[in-house]
Amino acid sequence: MVTYIIRRLIWGVVMLAIVSMTTFAIFFLVPRLAGATSDSLAARYVGRTANAEQVKIAAERLGFNDPLIVQYGRFAKGIVVGADYNYGPGVERCPAPCLGYSFLTRLPVWPDLLTRLPVTISLALGAAVIWLIAGVATGVVSALRRGSFFDRASMSIALAGVSLPIFFTGIVSLVLFSYGRPFAITAPGGSFTPFFTNPVQWAYSLLLPWITLAFLYAAGYARLTRSGMLETMNEDYIRTARAKGLTERVVVFKHGLRGALTPILTIFGLDLGLLMGGAVLTESTFSLPGIGKYAIDAITSQDLPKVMGVVLVTAFFVVLANLVVDLLYAVVDPRVRLT
């Protein structure tokens, strides 16, 4: 078990290294393919007032003339131990984990991400709770009443939920449910309030995004739960459970649902991991200052260091979620042995 975790952690680090290499390579190449030179890149750091000479010096100091490998090495070292940036006006210390400086704001990326993480986590966790409960419950009832009106109706809605993009459902919900609208369920103000500042306000501010995001996921989970339950309820051990004289409630929840939940757990872990990297559409639609919004802003302004930061943080959460899911698997299913 311990060796398993250690091995998985080592693999996780290797995975992150590969992701960082790939993204670095892409982001190193993209501007150059677009015609940028070391000088034009350095120009973004030194500001518009700098003359050509200063830019050249900055490019040299920032190492833009070095080979790709050397630049990546410096970038990776920055993440682990921090780095010093020296672009003309002065040396700036960028403490570990240093994901570089924004082209535009000239602020380090990492603290930026840190301030935005609570928003994304709040959004993801809250939505996750809603979609898990709603999706699994709908799926179970649909499976047990297969072919009924409820089954057909909920599966049609689920199909809609899977197919309709957030920027549609999000805007519809904003039009209908936000403050001042006919079916308002949110408080005035609307902007994000940290949980520790005011939990009620926190929930209020996030209710609409939660529901919108959860709708998308709940739909998928309902379908997944339904098919899982249909399969499990046909298992021999369900017949055994009934033959023992257990009540249908115990058969369904203790024996059936337990068997059907394992694949849901896997998907759940991965979905949650991905969402930690920002629910891009939801955050943009509801103007939430989370990581997704940060990424979109970075992409539109071509602020490469920010984009790379978001990619790496997302990769980190996905790798972590994978590990957690696999460990949980062994807890849920005693047949799984981690070796």
Partner: peptide, 13 residues
């Protein structure tokens, strides 16, 4: 009742 395949007839969890 006793079923045929005790591996699938008992709950694995």
């Amino acid at each position: 009742m006793i079923f045929q395949d005790p591996l699938s007839a008992m709950h694995p969890y």
